[in-house]
């Protein structure tokens, strides 16, 4: 057994040395990213008056440059496609911790109906974290989420990596998508030929489908804004169907009365026309410009920036 234990120890020591060959991968990974939003947050580069949080719906549906130009302030869209409230809360936490300038107004777009549901395609974007694993804040979050072990992480570089670190190509968005300097995204392909027409029926909301973890992070998001004296505005973005007032009421009940809520007028014919949508849930760029204008008018009329 002595021989075995000695050989095992030698194996571990050699592997530990081998492991250090992966340091350049960790250091180089951020340079392969096209979307630098999270890294900029970690480096404390944000100094905007308005920040927009949400998933792909607000990424494509709110044009931050137009909003900033209209209101004569700096606006940035920090939304990430495929991200859920847990990821958005993490970004907000990092925004505060890393001494970015606090925004005067934070716009949070909530996804109907799945904001608080389990969703296979909208989740905590771990693949956005792994390329930035050289930052301690990212390592801490991966450990806190149970992805990595604290002690193994400090011993082995390899234990800090994820699958995305093995892809050495520069990241690309999907063929027709690109990110603009204001953080908003645009899809250049205007197909408008998604199936189905405008759904005008009654929509339901099932509280039992909510995940406690998402509910907790949603509340934490609200509390962080309150604690940091950031004005929070929750928006219900247009979709190619009627508004779900059960869902909106649920969000209002959870978030409380001291929040600004903004939906859109169901009477507006705009949001019932296919030409403003890429699919049943995402506005296209023309739709985004119209919605952003509505948003601007509301912020201005309610004097939310002052």
């Amino acid at each position: 057994m002595k021989k075995f234990l000695l050989k095992l120890l030698l194996f571990v020591i050699c592997f530990w040395a081998f492991d250090k060959l992966f340091i350049p991968i960790v250091n180089n990974a951020p340079s392969l990213e096209v979307d630098k939003k999270l890294e900029d947050v970690l480096q404390g580069k944000f100094n905007h008056d308005i920040l927009i949080f949400g998933s792909s719906i607000s990424s494509f549906g709110i044009y931050a440059k137009q909003l900033g130009d209209s209101l004569k302030c700096k606006a940035y869209n920090l939304s990430s496609p495929g991200s859920d409230i847990e990821y958005q809360e993490f970004v907000l936490r990092q925004l505060i911790l890393n001494k970015n300038k606090k925004p005067k107004l934070l716009v949070l777009s909530v996804d109907e109906p799945g904001e608080l549901y389990f969703d296979k395609v909208v989740n905590f974007r771990l693949d956005r974290l792994y390329p930035l694993v050289k930052y301690q804040q990212i390592k801490d979050e991966l450990i806190a989420r149970g992805e990595k072990n604290k002690y193994l992480s400090s011993l082995f570089i390899l234990h800090q990596l994820g699958k995305s670190n093995l892809d050495f190509r520069t990241r690309q968005f999907a063929a027709n998508d690109r990110i603009m300097p204001c953080g908003s995204m645009i899809n250049s392909l205007r197909t408008n030929n998604f199936p189905g027409g405008y759904y005008n029926g009654n929509r339901q909301y099932d509280i039992t489908k909510e995940l406690p973890s998402k509910r907790k992070k949603f509340k934490s998001f609200i509390e962080t804004c309150a604690r940091e004296h950031i004005k929070l505005m929750i928006v219900f973005m247009p979709r190619f169907h009627s508004r779900n007032f059960y869902f909106e009421q649920r969000i209002k009940n959870l978030a409380g009365p001291n929040i600004i809520y903004y939906g859109y007028s169901e009477n507006s014919i705009t949001y019932k026309q296919k030409e403003y949508f890429n699919d049943a849930v995402h506005l296209n760029f023309e739709g985004a410009k119209l919605y952003t204008n509505d948003l601007f008018n509301y912020i201005k009329s309610e004097r939310l920036l002052y």
Binding site: P81, L126, D127, G162, K163, S164, N165, L166, F173, A174
Partner: peptide
């Protein structure tokens, strides 16, 4: 080591 996590590549489409 690298694959032992819940990370999934983001399926954009």
């Amino acid at each position: 080591f690298i694959y032992n996590n819940k990370e999934q590549q983001f399926i954009y489409f």
